[in-house]
Design a protein around this nucleic acid. Structure first.
Lengths: 199, 199
DNA sequence: CACACATCTTGACAGCGTCAAAATAAGACT
DNA sequence: AGTCTTATTTTGACGCTGTCAAGATGTGTG
């Protein structure tokens, strides 16, 4: 169906746009990412991107998709590690989450920020990737309860919402530069894990 | 020095602008609040606001100031209540925080969102109001530790960051419409309070 | 070889924040 | 009083943004 590369006028505009857009995103954030500057950077006219993305929103969603994939692989990797107690793994997962947000603040802002999720502007493709990620959080919480790491008295869904909410909140405080800074990451994570886990 | 009211051309443009801006904010969010539409709404020309606010940013900061004041009074009121245990008060504080965010999502987004805090764009006036609010959070946490509500083993600052982070995170998940919705508020708050408090 | 289609460009429009310069009205001073 | 200074508001303009409509250009298929 679709040729692999170097066909048509530009070659593979769509992925070139995505790559450049990701770079611009991490350089200057969502606000600083304009379609016109993006087109300029790739070397095409202002409206060329519109033949590959219906909207600026659709472009942003496509970028976020890649972010979720990368994020998912990251979490998977941590959990497949051996020789760690459940609590150590959870600690590492927690720290990994905050670390990802701190190192990719603009991407995190895009993935979990209101630009996309506020007014239901998320693409179907993005939902298909993001929702399972949210669901996985609940499943993992259930396991943590069964393994005695987290209190079984609490409803699993609520517990998942609260623990993820904590990670999300700390991440946001960090990347929005309010009240907390990077040098506190490790201590904050340890503190949170202590509060959430028994033993 | 400055006349109280009904002097000059318009009367009291500054407060008229602020009031209209607050209305527009809650109607259509930060993104939907444009200086031009604001001026139009108040009945002045597009650049009139610039003699009362240097920037759009400065206007936003002025709005946020009012938000912090209202928010501060709200918290004060809860703590001055009698006939409640420490835990009940904390529960109510927690719920009040989330409730405020859920009922004033756009104002909360302005007060604690990246628009203002990201690139150090907060006004000095705003800082003077906001920073003590953050500080108060730490002091209250210290009291909660002393009263045996929260673990004394944890560093007060970290504990404050984590507990506030949790409130902030849940608030953001709610108002950004991701993963949680309003009907879960009470249960989430109870769950979080259970995790954070002893006894 | 021609036709259809995907792709890209040019032109245009409305909206935004903001600056400069001109117009207007109020208060202060002699 | 009247003049002057100063605060306030307006008009005009600039560059930026996202996006639509129409035209130009190249590619793959029949």
């Amino acid at each position: 169906m679709t040729a692999n590369k170097s066909s048509y006028h530009h070659g593979d505009l769509r992925s070139s746009l995505l790559e450049a857009a990701k770079a611009m995103l991490s350089e200057s954030g969502i606000e600083g990412l304009s379609l016109r500057k993006l087109a300029d950077r790739v070397g095409v006219s202002r409206t060329a991107p519109y033949h590959h993305f219906k909207d600026k929103n659709e472009l942003l969603c496509a970028i976020a998709e890649e972010g979720f994939e990368h994020w998912h692989n990251n979490a998977e990797q941590i959990f497949s590690q051996n020789g760690l107690t459940t609590k150590q793994k959870y600690h590492q997962f927690f720290q990994g989450y905050i670390g990802y947000a701190a190192e990719n603040p603009e991407m995190y802002d895009l993935m979990f920020g209101r630009t996309i999720w506020k007014q239901n502007s998320a693409t179907n493709d993005l939902r298909d990737i993001a929702y399972p990620s949210f669901q996985r959080q609940v499943e993992m919480t259930k396991k943590w309860q069964e393994q005695g790491l987290m209190p079984v008295e609490e409803d699993t869904l609520r517990l998942a919402q609260v623990t993820w909410g904590t990670m999300h909140g700390i991440a946001r405080l960090l990347i929005d530069g309010i009240y907390a800074d990077r040098s506190h990451i490790d201590e904050m994570c340890t503190c949170a894990v202590n509060l959430f886990t028994r033993e």
